[in-house]
């Protein structure tokens, strides 16, 4: 059994979105409930989150964008950059704390306190661009994590695997020209799903050509196509890139019961994702992986999927 770290902080609940918004505080409460019922909560090593130092956020985001976001929250505006991105006065600090939670998890893994970690954070991050909030995301938690791994721990090659049902446009664009961060995303085909990017011909450019890989899933194709693409695309690319550490953009919105998407992935399909990733990580990076929550909006199934995911991280 692995020692698995778990990042959670009650302050993550303070980011209040408008009534009926799918990215709500109840998502995290449902996850805590699920882990507690499964008897896993006490077996995880709780990692305390601290607000990220601004210089790490600046490693990815434009300083003017960071200021604009803080101001929007302080002034009590209802949303930021787009009506999707519902905010409240606390959102800025919670977003800082979400990044900080991921950095703390990275510390714990890199200093050998835990083998791997799951970060139950919000707001999510993978749609956030260098200077634009999109799709409920403000700071790109995983992208900042990748820069932190490189600059704080001297990790040369980081792989980000994004299995949220939506393409992580922000993460892709941040590392478009970078050959030290390999970005793999598997998501519903962009002709049908938000944000409409992540086609298979998007493979990075100039210095980063070949260091972005997108696998698209047509509506309704579910488990079989996920299996085919993970084995055919992810596994060989991962092995040839040979990363030293892995970050996951863990989205649980591809499930057949989640109205956010149409990919029809089953609970067993998610297990296949978990198993494939864990095998890669165990074989190639000494098990070093930090998994960060992105989407997943069906409150009955989200805790089940996260619990299964964490079981695989723990190796039980």
């Amino acid at each position: 059994m692995n020692t698995t770290g778990f990042v959670f902080d009650e302050r993550y609940l303070l980011h209040k979105t408008f009534n009926g918004h799918p990215e709500c505080a109840e998502r995290l409460l449902s996850i805590i409930g699920g882990l507690s019922t499964a008897g896993l909560l006490e077996k995880l090593m709780l990692i305390k989150a601290e607000p990220a130092d601004q210089r790490w956020i600046e490693a990815v985001h434009n300083i003017r964008y960071i200021m604009k976001f803080e101001e929007a929250c302080l002034w009590g505006l209802p949303d930021f950059d787009h009506a999707d991105n519902s905010i409240c006065r606390d959102t800025y600090e919670v977003a800082q704390l979400a990044v900080g939670g991921v950095l703390k998890a990275i510390d714990a893994v890199m200093q050998g306190e835990v083998t791997n970690a799951f970060c139950a954070v919000r707001p999510p991050g993978h749609h956030a661009e260098v200077n634009q909030a999109l799709g409920f995301c403000y700071f790109n938690n995983v992208a900042i994590g990748a820069r932190y791994l490189q600059r704080q721990y001297g990790v040369d090659k980081v792989c980000i695997i994004d299995f949220d049902v939506h393409h992580g446009n922000g993460t892709q664009h941040i590392f478009d020209t970078d050959n030290t961060v390999f970005y793999y995303s598997i998501h519903e085909h962009p002709s049908f799903a938000y944000p409409g990017t992540g086609r298979e011909f998007e493979t990075g450019y100039s210095g980063g050509e070949g260091f972005t890989l997108n696998s698209t899933i047509l509506p309704g194709r579910g488990d079989e196509e996920y299996r085919e693409k993970l084995l055919g695309d992810l596994v060989p690319a991962f092995e040839s890139f040979a990363p030293e550490a892995v970050l996951l953009s863990a989205g649980f919105d591809a499930h057949e019961s989640d109205l956010m998407s149409g990919t029809s992935l089953t609970t067993e399909g998610y297990d296949f994702i978990n198993d494939t990733i864990m095998e890669l990580v165990n074989t190639h990076t000494n098990g070093k992986v930090v998994s960060v929550l992105e989407g997943g909006y069906q409150l009955d199934i989200l805790p089940v999927l996260v619990t299964n995911h964490i079981r695989k991280l723990m190796g039980v």
Binding site: Y194, L259, M260
Partner: peptide, 10 residues
């Protein structure tokens, strides 16, 4: 032009 389609679908 949104990611927020759940309420509309319902």
């Amino acid at each position: 032009l949104t990611n927020n389609v759940i309420a509309i679908k319902k």
